[in-house]
């Protein structure tokens, strides 16, 4: 699978990408690759993580080849859609983080146009993560919650057991339980 995770620097996209790569290997992949954005963009800029769970030489997903986009922010989802396959899926947080230039009136943030575009281009599900993730460390588990939602939708071809094992390995013990709960809340949010 080719999975693209996007958001705003500081939202925790890298942990989500690590969990996916680790769980793919637990489930038997020979090699999983990720390509991260680490550096200046982590200060509130656009960030993207590429995750590839099948054998490739490069970690970067070409345009039009992602099976799934997990977006932590609406505008960033729209920005990354050209990476998605025509049959690809998108799990999108409704969260709107307006760049400072928008608040200053230099640029516009057209929420409705973004949403329409995402809906027209992908089989997508929108989640109110600001509310859903609030009970889990004041929204700090949005990443594991979105993973749960993508898994719950059947968009991730990895077992629940492997994802939880990967979380055990990668998350500090004192934060593990709340992240597992957020993951399960993500599954629940898209069920039924």
């Amino acid at each position: 699978m080719n999975i693209l995770i996007c958001g705003v620097g500081g939202q925790g996209t890298i942990l989500a990408s690590k969990i996916l790569a680790e769980s793919a290997v637990i489930d038997g992949s020979d090699v999983a690759r990720t390509g991260e954005t680490i550096g200046m963009s982590q200060r509130g800029g656009s960030v993207v993580s590429h995750v590839r769970t099948e054998k490739t030489s490069s970690p970067y997903i070409p345009k039009g080849q992602a099976d799934l986009i997990i977006a932590f922010e609406k505008c960033e989802a729209a920005r990354c859609l050209p990476f998605l396959k025509p049959s690809g899926k998108a799990v999108v947080s409704m969260s709107e983080i307006k760049p400072v230039a928008v608040s200053l009136g230099v640029m516009a943030y057209d929420s409705k146009a973004m949403e329409d575009y995402i809906k027209s281009a992908a089989e997508s599900i929108f989640l109110d993560t600001d509310t859903l993730a609030a009970p889990f460390m004041d929204g700090k588990c949005t990443n594991t919650l979105l993973l749960g939602a993508a898994f719950g939708m059947g968009f991730i071809n990895i077992s629940e057991n492997a994802i939880k094992k990967a979380m055990e390995k990668l998350i500090k013990p004192r934060f593990l339980d709340v992240n597992i709960k957020a993951f399960e809340a993500g599954i629940k949010a898209v069920s039924g």
Partner: peptide, 19 residues
């Protein structure tokens, strides 16, 4: 030609900022 979504909305750029 890889079929993919063509961006048809104007998105604000998101440069890094002081936290």
């Amino acid at each position: 030609e890889t079929p993919s979504a063509k961006l048809n909305v104007t998105l604000p750029t998101r440069a890094p900022v002081l936290c």
